[in-house]
Design a protein around this nucleic acid. Structure first.
Lengths: 193, 193
DNA sequence: GTCTATATTCGGATAGAC
DNA sequence: GTCTATCCGAATATAGAC
C-alpha cells in the first residue's frame, strides 16, 4: 500500500507527533486544534490525515508515546544510592524524555476520564512499582543492612511511587516547593517497627 | 440591580454549579458543553448566562468551589492517630466534599495549563502543608515521643502531602492499588538519622 | 503523498418575547 | 428573570487537483 518506505512513514509519524506534543505541553490536549498542529508541523491537513485517521487517534498515540518510557536501566551499582537520589535521577530521566513533566499531570487528568488512557497509565504503574520494589530491596539490604529486605521492598514500593508522584505534582502545580528538601526527606525515612 | 434576594441568587448559582460539577466528574471540563449543563440543570440558556457570563467563568467557579474545602477541623484528640489513619480521614473528608476524587486529578491537569488555576491550587497546597506540619508535630511529640517534634513536622509535611497525592493518583488512575497497605506503610515510616 | 479549498457539524453566546 | 430561537465562529474531516 505505502509507496514510500516504512522508515519514511515512521519518521513522518514521529515528526507529526513531536510537533503535536510540543503544543500539548503548552495548551493541553483538547485546546490544541488540528490547525495548530498543521501549522506547527509545517505540513498540510491532507498530509496529517494520511498518517492519523483522526485527532483522537493522534492524541492517543501521543499519550502512548509519552508513557512508553524507556526507563534508563539502573546500572546496578546505583543500589547504594539513597531513595531521594534515586528518585532525582528517575525524575530527571522522565523530564528529559517527556520534555515537560506537566504533560504527565495532564495524562493523569485524562486517565480519570477514559478507560483507554487509564489502561495505559495502569501498565506504567505496575512497571514503576516493580522497579521500585527491586531498587528498595537492594537499598534495604545493602544500604541499610536490613534482613527482610525483599518483603520490605515489595511493601514500600507503592509508597515511593506515591512520593514520586507527589514530587511531580508539587513541582508542577504548587508554588513554594523545595524539591531538594523533599528528596532529602524521602531519603531519610525508614521502615519503623 | 437584582430583583430577587441575594439568597435566591446564591441558591441558583449553587444549583447551576452542582449540576455542572456532576457533569465535569463524568466528562471532564472541556468535553462538557453548555448544552449539557443546561439540560442537567433543568434551566435554560438565558437563565444560566444570567448567573455566569461565560463557560470559562463557570469552570473557574467550579474549580474554586471544589478547592475551597472546609477541611474538617481535626478534633485535637486525633493527635495520637498514626499518619495513615489521619490520611484516611482526610481523604474520606475530601471525597465526601468533592463527590469524586477524580475531579481533583482533573483540576491538577488544568493547573499545569493556566496561571489562574495554578494560583488556586497553590493556595490549597500551602494550607495542606500547614495542616500536616501541625499534625505531624503532635504525632512526633505525643505519638512517638521525639524531642525536636516541631522541626520534624515542618520538614516532613511536604512529604506527607505528596504521599497523600500519591494515594489519590494511584487510587484513581492506576489499577491493582491496595489502599490499606499504602496507608499502613505511611503509618510505619519514621524519620531516620 | 501532499496540497488547497471547502463542506458540515457543533458549541458558545445573544436577542427579543414573555 | 427566564425562555426559545438563532447567529456566528471555530474546528474536524474530506474532496479533488497536482
Amino acid at each position: 500500500m505505502p509507496k514510500v518506505t516504512q522508515e519514511h512513514r515512521d519518521a513522518r509519524r514521529r515528526e507529526i507527533i513531536t510537533a503535536a506534543i510540543r503544543l500539548f505541553a503548552r495548551q493541553g490536549f483538547q485546546a490544541t486544534s488540528m490547525a495548530d498542529i498543521i501549522a506547527e508541523s509545517g505540513l498540510s491537513a491532507g498530509a496529517i490525515y494520511g498518517y492519523y485517521k483522526s485527532k483522537d487517534e493522534l492524541v492517543q498515540s501521543a499519550m502512548t508515546e509519552l508513557l512508553d518510557l524507556r526507563f534508563a536501566a539502573r546500572s546496578g551499582d546505583d543500589a547504594a544510592l539513597p531513595p531521594g537520589e534515586t528518585m532525582r535521577r528517575f525524575i530527571t530521566g522522565l523530564d528529559d524524555e517527556m520534555g515537560d513533566l506537566g504533560l504527565l499531570v495532564q495524562v493523569w487528568g485524562q486517565a480519570v476520564l477514559d478507560q483507554t488512557s487509564r489502561d495505559a497509565t495502569a501498565r506504567i504503574g505496575d512497571r514503576l512499582r516493580a522497579i521500585w520494589a527491586s531498587y528498595l530491596t537492594e537499598w534495604y539490604r545493602d544500604g541499610l543492612g536490613l534482613s527482610n529486605a525483599e518483603q520490605l521492598g515489595e511493601r514500600f514500593a507503592p509508597l515511593y511511587v506515591g512520593i514520586m508522584q507527589g514530587y511531580i505534582l508539587q513541582m508542577t502545580v504548587f508554588g513554594n516547593f523545595d524539591g531538594e528538601a523533599y528528596l532529602e526527606a524521602a531519603s531519610v525515612i525508614r521502615p519503623g517497627p
